[in-house]
Structure formats: C-alpha cells, structure tokens
Design a protein around this nucleic acid. Structure first.
Lengths: 252, 252
DNA sequence: CGCCCATTTGATCAATGTCAATAGTGGTGG
DNA sequence: CCACCACTATTGACATTGATCAAATGGGCG
C-alpha cells in the first residue's frame, strides 16, 4: 500500500496520478516511478521547453502549469497541436524519435521536471509493464491528434471550440485538477485560435456565442460549465478516444 | 545474411521493408519478423477491416493495396485520418488500446495479413529492440497526424493538397512502391476531400489548379510529378516529420 | 447500349479571415 | 494611490475561401 493511501487529501506524484488514470500500476511500479530522478525547473510563461529540430536527451514532465505542443510555419503562422497538463510528458516521443519535429512551450509559468532518457529506458527495461503504459500514453496522445483532426476537418468553429473545452475538462478531472463544473483555463483567445485553426477574432465571437447559449461561463481564465450534458451534446463529445480507465461514474 | 540479399531485385516481406525504412534490424530480428504467423485475406475495395468500437484481437498488416483510417460523424460526414500502404499496420495501436475509436477500411481491393496480438506481444517480449521499433512506428504515425493537423488548421486547400501528394510520394518511395517521378494514387476526389477536410467539388478545383500550374499530372489514378522541387516548395513540404532512416540521396 | 460512379462546371451562399479601431485589465514605477 | 504600458478582449466593416446545390459530362463495364 502506498503510504498516502491513508488519507485521500494527499496529492500523489502528478505522474502517478496521470498514469493511474489510464492504467493500473503495481506497487512495485509505483515505487519505480517515484524513484525516477527528476530535475525540476520553472519556466516562465510563453517560453520554450524544447524546440523544433532539437535532439533532446531527456523528457519533460509537467508538474504544474499549462504547456502546449506547437509548430511555427515559415510565414510565422502557428499551429498548436495539443495542450498538456500536470502529469503529462509532452515530449515522450523524443525517446524514440531523435529529432524534434515541433516545439513544446509553456502557456503560463510552469514547473517542469526533466527526466533523462537513460533513466526512462532503464525503468522500462526493468518494468516492461511500465513500458507498455508509456506506449499506451503515447497512443492516447495520437488519439487526441486524430480527434483534433476530425474537428478541424469536419466540425464548425463552434462545435470544435466546445469540443476542446470538453476535452480539457475530462482530462483535468481525470487527474483531479478540475472541479465538478469547471476549471482554470489560462489560455488566451489567440492561443485558442492557434489550437483550433481559427483567427483570434473568430474565437472571440465563438466564445460569445457559447456564452450567450448558456453553454459556458468564461471570465478571466476561469471556465465554468453550467450544463455539462448540453455542452457535450453540442460538441458531439465522446470521451472514448481518451481511453481513460474509469469513466463510469465520472464525467465523460 | 538473408538469402535474398544475393540479388537486389527480390521483394522482401513488406513489413521488413517498412521497418527497415525507419530503423535498422538485426538478422535475428528479421528472422523473427518473418516467422510471425500471418493470416492473409483479401478485402474488396471500400470495405472495413476493423470498425469503430471493435475490440480487435489481432493487427492488420497491409500486404498490398491502399487502406485508410477514418471516422464517421453522427451526421454522416467522414474524416479520413491517414492513408496506409503495404508494410503499414494501421491498427497497431489496438495492441494497447482495447477499443477502436475509429475504423480502418480499404480504398481499393487489398490483401491484408492478420497477426494475432498474442504473437506480436511474444515477438516483442523476446526482441525488445523490435518493441522499440514498433513503438517508433506508432510515434511516426502520430507525427503524421500532427502534420495533417497543421495542414487543416493553417494551410490553404491548395498547399494542403500538394502536401498530401508529397507525403505519399516520400512514403511510397521509402518502401520502393513509387517511381522517381510519380506513383499510383487509387483515391477518388471524394476520398481526398474527406482526408483533407474539403468538399469533393473543391478538391476537383484544387487539382485543376495544381495541374494548370504544372505541378502535377494526374490522370486515371496515376500521378506524376514533373518537378518535385517545385511541388515541395509550394507545399512547404519537409519530410523530417516522417523520421525516415535514409533521406540523404533520396527524395525528401 | 445503358448504368453507375467519378469528374467537372456554374451559380450562389455561408463560414471564417483580415484589417482597423476601441475598450478592458493587470502590473509597474513613481 | 495614480498614471501609464502592454497585452488581451471586443467590435465593425469588408474580403475571401471553400461549401452547397444542381446539373452536365465522361469512363468503365456488364
């Protein structure tokens, strides 16, 4: 038994939380995770953690904050390809893809733990079960990319925006970082636009539409969702693609 | 030495070709791959290999043909999320994600080898190097999703279409299935639209533009690219995201 | 020959982008 | 505590891309 199982209030390691949201861990595996060497470093808002074309020698675990994966096109336009929250390792792929094909950066001041590839490789060599779980995590990441593709290819700006808000809600809840009816969303409309493939101006209008339909209350980076079912329906949101372990009684 | 190394003309196993395009294999690993049990089955054009919500117990290896990953939305619209060619295993993720969150189907009559999960797991248990390579493959898949997202979010229909044609060319060449200046593209304009997030009508117009600019010659499923550099430039195509092993002297 | 499917064309419409200006808002130095 | 600054949000007018609808053309095949 882990010691903090005695009182539910204690926050376990963010990475443990995350992994346990998508798979079961043995005590041994938990210990091994906790034993990983981590170099914690605080990044200011809007700064890069890893850059396009880098060849990282370690992975970045988000401990606190809000991070995104993005790519800048030749003409300066930016596409954000995913948001990452505490417990996520946005550059896990660098373990097996030497060269970064995009960048990873913070949206707000974030604390990031750096874990050498070498230690991750050793961990997985000794714990094949964990290797599977990390692989699984990267597959879920890919599933999120697919879902975003569906949105950008076939959903309206309105639906797509609602869908993103649903995704973040479910993911944040899965690691205990969202309340029952909302969460902190420290993302500017410009950043939302880059993630959704929309202009800032249009994001602004879509958000107003979502507000006026009573689907969201968004004010100063704080989002609340008065009627989850309604939002879910307009977004055509089905959390199956997140492949979370326990969705039964939860949102989703 | 593998026996067919004696004469370069012999086509090795499609899966070997594919894996060797993204990583180095030892002779032992090659043998192990060749020893995989495969159940070959021919699928007619436009038929499903695996369906959304299925729980597959094996993976599908494309031996011949042209396959795609897609999802149908509630209102019937379709988004194609990737094209798969001989050597690809489009549902590799089913190894670690129990439930399919989309479908995989053929575009043309294709022969598909079915490999039980169990055998793949055993293979990887005995050959951890192969596990890494398969993981790497799934990460490259994810990189392609990201690139498509960039296209749908931030590129015009024109650029995006050109980009897709570039991607397919490089991927087909990497496994020896494309000539120096073109390849067979057995995909209807409707299917292209579903992949690019465009209407069929618009795809038609974009293709005409590409033709009239002399960037492509497309006729009856046969694509030729008169000036690769020109197409690459208009598409802003950089093959880095495909993480192929040898791009040096090749297209890319 | 006739049919089915894919391609092509034209006309019009709707969603979203772009440009430019105006308001908030929070943080900072004085 | 206040004025100022930089960034973010909001609004309006207009431009553009790409969707939609409808119809015609073309090709392959039983």
């Amino acid at each position: 038994m882990r010691s903090d199982a005695l009182h539910g209030q204690v926050q376990p390691h963010p990475l443990l939380r995350k992994l346990e949201s998508i798979a079961d861990l043995s005590d041994e595996e938990r210990q091994a995770i906790l034993a990983l060497p981590m170099n914690v470093r605080v990044f200011e808002a809007k700064s890069d953690i890893v850059r396009d074309a880098d060849r990282p020698s370690d992975c970045a675990l988000v401990l606190d904050g809000f991070v995104c994966r993005y790519k800048i096109l030749p003409d300066g336009r930016r596409q954000i390809m995913g948001f990452y929250i505490p417990g996520d390792i946005p550059d896990l792929q660098s373990l097996h893809l030497q060269v970064m094909d995009h960048s990873v950066g913070t949206l707000v001041r974030s604390s990031i733990a750096t874990i050498p590839h070498q230690n991750l490789r050793e961990l997985m060599r000794h714990h094949p079960g964990l290797a599977e779980i990390f692989w699984r995590d990267s597959l879920i990441d890919a599933a999120m990319f697919r879902e975003w593709m569906i949105g950008m290819g076939r959903r309206t700006a309105f639906q797509r925006t609602a869908h993103l808000l649903c995704e973040l809600h479910v993911r944040l809840r899965a690691v205990g970082l969202a309340g029952a009816d909302g969460y902190e969303l420290p993302v500017t409309q410009n950043e939302l636009g880059d993630a959704l493939g929309l202009s800032t101006v249009h994001v602004n209008r879509v958000l107003q539409d979502l507000r006026s339909e009573g689907l969201i209350v968004l004010r100063g980076g704080s989002l609340s969702i008065p009627d989850w079912e309604a939002l879910k329906i307009t977004a055509e949101f089905d959390s199956a693609y997140l492949h979370l372990k326990a969705l039964a009684r939860d949102v989703g």
